[in-house]
């Protein structure tokens, strides 16, 4: 069964087309990496799918119904540097944000919500930092707080925007562990990913993107040197070439 069906998405920015002809479908319980060079529109794609930015045209179906009807099934982990970490709040409060839909608008968090938030923090190894001001966390710890918030959302489909960028080894492990667990629970995960060396290890499906989709499918068949050359237009580095080929 398809968790996600994306048809013909086109996005314009300042009258310029930054993304077009994007159609693909994502089977339930898969881990998909969205890969491409800088400026390829990877983040733009997930933001357009999530209706965070306007799209010129295209449709998104979640479990065969419109995105709006199924919005509650979606979880989102934004890029870490998109928020102000100097904001006066602590780790637990950030995780509680994942529960806001269940808490209800204009209502206060209950004891049960706080317990769940702490369980989520515990799962990513951050319980000891629950009351820590967020600016005092390392980059990796901040990313893990965002993961805990996504956990607290208890979604069926997760979108993550470059979760691995600038994190320590422990956080990387935590993210992979979580993705595998989600997959085992039948959840679907899409990740904007930068590091070509780890694509084959982490994802069972890949979308190669450079303003238009270059190739999409199972990692084994799609993630080839030929396709990468087409995606990166020859701008692929020696080092990356070497590691992908081995």
């Amino acid at each position: 069964m398809n968790a996600l069906e994306i048809t013909n998405i086109k996005v314009n920015y300042h009258k310029q087309t930054v993304l077009e002809n994007v159609s693909f479908h994502v089977p339930e319980g898969s881990l998909t990496g969205i890969v491409g060079p800088n400026g390829a529109g990877k983040s733009t794609l997930i933001k357009a799918v999530l209706e965070l930015i306007p799209k010129h045209s295209g449709a998104v179906k979640v479990y065969e119904q419109s995105f709006r009807q199924q919005k509650h099934l979606i979880g989102y982990v934004p890029q870490r540097n998109e928020v102000d970490w100097d904001f006066p709040t602590n780790a637990r409060d950030i995780v509680l944000m994942g529960r806001y839909r269940k808490i209800g608008f204009f209502k206060r968090a209950k004891k049960r919500d706080i317990e769940i938030a702490d369980q989520c923090l515990d799962k990513v190894g951050m319980l000891d930092f629950a009351t820590r001001q967020i600016s005092q966390l390392s980059g990796g710890q901040q990313q893990r707080v965002f993961l805990a918030r996504a956990l607290a959302q208890d979604a069926s489909i997760y979108f993550m925007d470059e979760p691995f960028s600038g994190v320590d080894a422990a956080t990387e492990k935590a993210i992979i562990h979580l993705m595998k667990e989600w997959k085992n629970e039948g959840k679907t995960v899409l990740v904007v990913h930068h590091d070509l060396q780890t694509v084959e290890e982490y994802f069972d499906r890949v979308l190669l993107l450079n303003k238009v989709p270059i190739e999409y499918g199972e990692t084994q068949t799609v993630f080839t040197m030929d396709n990468l050359e087409r995606t990166y237009g020859g701008k692929i580095s020696f080092l990356e070439r070497a590691t992908v080929l081995t």
Binding site: L52, E82, F87, D93, M97, Y100, R101, F106
Partner: peptide, 16 residues
């Protein structure tokens, strides 16, 4: 509570 999340992380808030 809504001001807090809408100012801290507007994209995540929209998603909710």
């Amino acid at each position: 509570k809504e001001f807090k999340i809408a100012i801290f992380d507007p994209d995540f808030a929209k998603g909710l």
